[in-house]
Nucleic acid binder design. Structure first.
Lengths: 252, 252
DNA sequence: CGGCAGGTTGAGCGGATTCAAATACAGTGG
DNA sequence: CCACTGTATTTGAATCCGCTCAACCTGCCG
């Protein structure tokens, strides 16, 4: 039984069975649970291990001196929290759990050893990092050139695609248990305005946001409002390797 | 005589003389000049070479269907334009020259060969990519949680630090020949508002922006206005390797 | 000298914020 | 089971930052 991290990386690269087994072992070896608001890795910290989200939801964030907070990315199962520990001294931002979250602790030493032995892992890490860059760039466009409605629509559609990638968005519905305050901090809005905007999206029949679940009623409509173009997720690179059946690019 | 790319990477890693010579050869082999507005590498393109800025100024950008443009990053001498070509099929954004710019074309094949032979280059590329990520995250904070004045101040201070890194900011003055339209597209403002904000910064005696040159009159003041904290540039990782004399962390 | 791109200024508008209060909701302890 | 408490969502009204539209100025180049 494979873990979400290996699954995600396999969208890009092809591992041998031996490699898969070894990755599974790495992930299974040590894990840790976090309560909402717990730091998985704190701003300014360094760690000998890197952290992979196995279940739950986490975010990258930074807090300014005056208390303003910005969420820069959401991490879902299969996402690597802190690739930087391999080359940088300390984290320049924090990663915190938003819901009860389980993360695997992967020893940096063993990762480095495995990186030396197989080029597949290195390539997969590069792919993950490059798509992270793409997502961040898209977020900059959100904030710089899209208004509140487009911005929230874009985020919700992107999360839909990402949850589809890990098989967690059946029926265009996914669990996204964040508060409107979190949503505001992620989109660069105030909670009040995020609320009003969300109401508009609901009123237009694009989404349903009951409790902690997002149901996308009209995917094409939402995509159009957001001016979403999924190229930056680089799913097209994927299907060359995957088995027959699901083409990754169908996810967008 | 070393090139700006190698110089920049040496802030992080230590190359042997042989490695340095080889990098110099790679950079010297083929180069290309671009006029303002020329694409160095276009959105959606793929290339067998990667591009390193040797002189001039370039930017990463993306244009929405309705014409809105967002500049996501500025590239100065020593910056790598398109590390993604090693793992991704196509670019998800464009890189264009803003001034007459010279870039080295480095063969992807030879880079990969060198990556296999020395771990130093790989580590340096990781460092560059990780700091790029840090810069992008900081830009998201700019757009999400900083107002126009803080945002422009932050960008100008960051560029000061980056130009210092490559020895191009003597006397707190650096060449930054962009139009106010470009500045607006980078900061997510309109040209009109960027203009007015720039005037305020001048009126407060923080900067001088005559012609194409930025002179920072009051670095500490500008830094304070921007709430700048340079940790995300990860210069502290650097001085372990560099020779005596200039400590990299003094640049911030 | 005309043309053009970039910079500057003014007036009015609107999207998003701020402040404040009301309502819904989940968890806790009596 | 309900009262109590704290947190999240919703609504209203006033305000402001940044946008839009438009005009004008400046410097540069053919």
């Amino acid at each position: 039984m494979s873990n979400p991290w290996t699954m995600k990386m396999e969208m890009f690269t092809g591992f041998t069975d031996a490699e898969k087994r070894r990755l599974d072992e790495l992930v299974a070896a040590r894990r840790s649970t976090y309560r909402p608001r717990d730091d998985i890795i704190a701003d300014g910290a360094h760690s000998a291990d890197c952290h992979v989200v196995l279940s739950g939801l986490a975010c990258r964030y930074k807090i300014l001196r005056d208390g303003r907070r910005q969420i820069m990315a959401f991490l879902i199962p299969g996402d690597l929290c802190d690739a930087e520990i391999f080359v940088l001294k300390v984290m320049d931002h924090g990663v915190a759990a938003m819901t009860p979250t389980v993360a695997a602790l992967v020893s940096g030493k063993e990762m480095k050893a495995m990186l030396r032995e197989t080029s597949n892992l290195g390539e997969a890490l590069w792919w993950g990092t490059m798509t992270d860059l793409g997502v961040l760039r898209e977020r900059i466009i959100d904030h710089g050139r899209r208004n509140a409605k487009e911005r929230i629509a874009h985020l919700l559609y992107e999360m839909l695609v990402r949850y589809r990638m890990v098989g967690m968005a059946a029926d265009d519905t996914y669990d996204f248990p964040i508060t409107q305050i979190d949503l505001a901090d992620a989109t660069g809005l105030t909670a009040v305005h995020a609320n009003r905007t969300l109401q508009k999206l609901r009123a237009e029949g694009l989404i349903e946001a009951k409790g902690k679940t997002i149901k996308v009623l009209d995917p094409d409509g939402l995509k159009a409002v957001a001016q979403f173009n999924g190229d930056y997720l680089h799913l097209d690179r994927a299907h060359e390797h995957t088995d027959v059946g699901s083409r990754a690019s169908d996810l967008v």
